[in-house]
Write a protein that binds this DNA or RNA. Structure first.
Lengths: 241, 241
DNA sequence: AGAATTCCGGCACCGAGTGCCGCACGGGGC
DNA sequence: GCCCCGTGCGGCACTCGGTGCCGGAATTCT
């Protein structure tokens, strides 16, 4: 071995070396076949230090999500009230995709792990849930005055997360080829266009948005139709303005 | 609890007594403060038997989800191709809500546990994910010919699950008062009306099943909506016929 | 330099989960 | 009656993730 580098710029040297050692072992012999003792032995540190930097063995697989979640929270907190909430939330989702895109090989390797190991998959689920909750909380406050605002917020957050994950997984399955940002844009556009028709993207002129409050309900019935149901549909949709 | 379910071929005596003992201890001294040894001691059985009936300590908190997931899978597999996929998926979500509604007190107690204990929350997340995946798989096969079918399926499944959870959590937070089925119907109606405009239909539609070909397309758009988008939705939904 | 704080390693310990073995059933078969 | 065999249960003994605690070394402050 060459002489150790005397330059140690920041402080997270041990943290990074633990991540490196962990992934080396995870990829070559599997996650569950690797014990924490194996990791700390390879990294040349004490076992106790591992749990100082990572609260659990699973956390070492997702070392950057905590930071990304902070970024998203700050991003949403810094949004103006004039912005379209849905657009803002889509941009927040793009933040996550950008994090994945920064290290394609690392992201792909991690994806292979999470696909095989059930424990890592559930851990990733909990991370995704925190993202979704962050988006949902933001939408909830923005739509606090709206009737069914919380329901709308929950569903919208779930749809955005689902679209993001769709694009992300497709990109990861391809091995990190192509531009994931482009893919997630397509998916989010689909969500925004299909789910939330207000403030459509392509035409920048949303008519009757200022103080109109005039709901437009279009009912198209083809052939014979049980009218009682159509009436109920219209009534229920008019009931929530 | 009286013996209710006749569909239990094996002898669930020990299993039920383990569940009862576990919840007694969980509710009186907390989940993490209760060890598996405490449970088996109270139940009067050996420690090894616990893990014969429940693969992990968390599984004892969700003893009925496995059965419910099977029910949902069978329900979707038994659906005719003429059914509206979205309606079918909403009915599948109702199945889950019905399971919760069968034992309100038990559901509320479990809800309190999952709210406090982080480990149980992530476990519940993994269960919800399996439901969502089941719904998504079904929609994916139904929309295989559609452009962006998988994206549509993922987002729709996520929206349905989010709406279901919204109604469920609201009902659980109220302590199990009122009719949760009614609440989930409202929430699912919102999703179907807002997200998927094609073919609004009653859950048990007696019409349109005899000789078919009488498609009813109802498009409801809230607020002012760019008409080109409505037209596009109608056209695409008519193209499937 | 001396003191205080922080960082690290090495225990000892707890609890979840597993493999293995022995035992007590219970039911045929003869 | 006996023996045989499959099954369900209990009781180890063990691994491994995770935590509390303490002593020592490195670093920083004054």
């Amino acid at each position: 071995m060459a002489a150790t580098n005397p330059r140690t710029p920041p402080k997270p040297v041990m943290r990074d070396s633990l991540i490196a050692a962990a992934f080396r072992l995870f990829l070559e012999r599997g996650y569950e076949q690797t014990t924490v003792d194996d990791i700390v032995t390879l990294a040349g540190v004490g076992r106790r230090s591992f749990f100082r930097y990572f609260p659990s063995k699973e956390d070492v697989v997702f070392p950057d999500h905590e930071q990304c979640l902070d970024d998203m929270t700050r991003f949403l907190a810094a949004s103006a009230d004039t912005d379209d909430p849905v657009v803002r939330v889509c941009d927040a989702a793009r933040l996550v995709m950008r994090m994945y895109a920064e290290n394609p090989t690392f992201s792909v390797q991690r994806y292979r792990l999470t696909r095989e190991v059930a424990g890592l998959r559930t851990y990733e689920l909990s991370v995704v849930w925190r993202y979704e909750k962050t988006l949902g909380d933001y939408l909830r406050t923005r739509w606090a005055d709206r009737k069914d605002g919380t329901l709308r917020a929950n569903v919208a957050a779930a749809a955005v997360v689902a679209a993001h994950n769709h694009a992300l997984r497709h990109w990861l399955r391809s091995g990190g080829e192509g531009d994931p940002l482009e893919e997630v844009d397509r998916a989010l556009e689909f969500v925004r266009g299909t789910w939330s028709p207000d403030a459509a993207a392509p035409p920048a002129g949303p008519d009757a948005s200022a103080e109109g409050a005039d709901d437009v309900v279009v009912v198209i019935t083809k052939r014979s139709t049980p009218m009682w149901r159509v009436v109920r549909e219209v009534e229920s949709s008019l009931g929530e303005g």
